[in-house]
Amino acid sequence: MSRRIQYSNNGAAKVIVVIADIAALILGLWILFALLDANRANDLVSAVHAASLWLAGWSHDLFTMDAEWLRTVLNYGLPAVLYVFVGHLLAARIRRV
């Protein structure tokens, strides 16, 4: 018997996982846009940047490397990883209750 956690039976757990994954997706998308030097005047790029600034506001300038690409990956990647980790952990706890 598999001990895999299933979120389909609990709506609250599913909502938490979806929100955490969307937050991580937005942050990951911004990292991709920044690394590829996307046009910041574009509406999509601008919206993703604004959302990522809000989502990663607590980690702004946490890392201050000289290499801009590394600074972007760390300052936006850490929140993305934490949102997924904490979101899935919280959803698993809710599911077990």
Rank of each mutant, 00 (worst) to 15 (best):
L36I: 11
A47M: 13
I5P: 04
L27C: 00
A47F: 06
N39G: 07
N42T: 02
A50P: 00
V18A: 10
I19S: 00
A41T: 02
G57A: 04
R40T: 14
D37M: 10
A47D: 02
V15C: 11
V17W: 03
G11V: 11
I19Q: 02
S46F: 04
L35G: 13
S8Q: 06
R40V: 14
S8F: 09
A56V: 04
Y7R: 00
R40H: 10
G28S: 07
N9Q: 13
I26D: 02
H49N: 15
N42S: 14
L44P: 05
D37L: 08
N9S: 14
D43I: 13
W30V: 02
A12H: 13
V45W: 03
A24F: 03
I26R: 00
G57D: 08
A24R: 02
V15F: 12
G11E: 05
A51K: 01
A13F: 08
G57S: 07
A41Q: 13
I31V: 12
V45C: 02
A47H: 07
V18I: 13
A20Q: 02
D43F: 15
S52E: 00
N10R: 09
S52K: 06
R40Y: 08
W30E: 12
A13D: 08
N39C: 10
A38I: 00
F33D: 11
G28W: 08
A24M: 01
A56M: 10
L27S: 05
V18D: 05
V17L: 04
A56H: 02
A12V: 13
A12G: 10
F33Y: 11
L27T: 03
W30L: 03
N9R: 14
